[in-house]
Design a protein around this nucleic acid. Structure first.
Lengths: 234, 234
DNA sequence: TTGCGCCGAGAACGATCGTTCTCTACTGTA
DNA sequence: TACAGTAGAGAACGATCGTTCTCGGCGCAA
């Protein structure tokens, strides 16, 4: 009895066959199946499903874009995968670029969540810093891994879409800030932070293109050397 | 006198306004203006201009693809920039993918030439190893720099074109081999080589997306630390 | 029950792109 | 000079894509 028939149909939409969106340790299935009450007032119900629909669209688009490239996926395919009408899709996102930006924003949040989880509960600042590379390794071994979505998007659209280029730049900047903060906690300076960030970036492209998931472990070992050299042997 | 009228027209084609193809220290203007004699036999002349036309097409396509992305540039635009007819273009390259692969191959050779020049004449193996990062810095400061063309191509087409993905993989592999060789010359093992390669890769994406050309210098400093730690202080 | 408004399904439209085809002009040769 | 062959210019074609429009059905209020 919950909702209309049409909504039930779109609720059990295919999630493009994979769990999560290909980001490590995410497992976000976006649809939380937690309606506010049953339907409450019409207005509240509409708002709830709007959020749900938006999330579903973004999740479907993210999986498709990440797996095949942005320009290789048409709006119609996103529509099918998300199980919404084209009209609804364009009601949520006025154009493809807005959808792409929403996907990147979602991916950014997943990335930050993953980083936070990797650091959570780790007491030693040095180990917390190195946990970044453990997180990367977990991500690289995901079978859907195909590199950093922001690097890919930048290479594909960075030259034609300033908004996409800016999104990639901001994502990388917040990562550098994150590493810098952890480095400071461990007693290192910003130079060390920048160098560790370089290792992480290099590991991502190497793992993606060369298909070498052990790039994370190589990067971790290099990071240990750099940290110990900067902080003095332990 | 030299050549036919039609050929002269296509000879002085616009080189898309830039010198080289955006790769550091290249300065390859592809067209060498060195005809074998004047026209010699008809057959030899045709062969000479064929090579020239091919190079011109590849150079024009490379500049356009690198600056704006591959999918954003149509065959017609390549045709105009190269100053050849569509028929001629398709006579040289049966399809766009073949042209893309030829561009990547050309870019790979330029990259190897640049690396070789950077190492040439440097006696000390350690300094020769570090010269990689000087080469990167020079490249990053080029105003047309927009990241590694192979990383960009992989992000854009790696999922849909196995040939492009393979080209990127091979390019990165030869780079790792190159670094490994120089590392061995300096007395280091393959672990060190892999780590230095990670730094170089990370510097490329960081310089491209964050626009920080100093990533090369940061990577160089990190490389020094890693080298000294692996080889013992000097 | 009747009318109203909303929404999904999908056709339609205009633009672009890769690729092919046609037409024309020109070159070299007998 | 007449002719055969070639190459350039660009029209044409089929496919795809982003976006909009139309149609038909359903839920809801009076």
């Amino acid at each position: 009895m919950a909702g209309t028939r049409g909504r039930d149909v779109t609720d059990e939409v295919p999630r493009t066959g994979r769990a999560g969106t290909g980001q490590a340790g995410s497992g976000t299935t976006s649809a939380r199946r937690a309606r506010t009450g049953t339907t409450s007032t019409r207005r509240a119900s509409t708002a709830a499903t709007q959020v749900e629909v938006r999330e579903r669209i973004v999740a479907a688009a993210d999986a498709l874009y990440y797996a095949r490239g942005i320009q290789a996926v048409g709006m119609d395919e996103v529509r099918t995968a998300a199980g919404v009408s084209l009209k609804r899709l364009y009601a949520e996102f006025p154009g493809k670029e807005q959808l792409v930006l929403a996907v990147l924003e979602s991916r950014h949040h997943q990335w930050e969540d993953g980083l936070g989880r990797a650091a959570a509960g780790v007491e030693d600042p040095r180990t917390r810093l190195l946990a970044i590379f453990d997180f990367l390794e977990e991500w690289f071994t995901d079978e859907t891994f195909r590199g950093c979505g922001f690097i890919n998007a930048f290479g594909e659209l960075g030259a034609t879409s300033p908004a996409v280029a800016a999104a990639a730049r901001e994502h990388k900047q917040t990562f550098q800030d994150h590493v810098a903060r952890l480095t400071r906690d461990a007693g290192g300076d910003e130079t060390l932070g920048a160098q560790l960030a370089l290792l992480a970036e290099g590991a991502q492209t190497t793992a993606a293109i060369a298909g070498r998931a052990d790039a994370a472990r190589q990067a971790r070992r290099a990071a240990e050397v750099l940290i110990d050299a900067a902080l003095g042997a332990r």
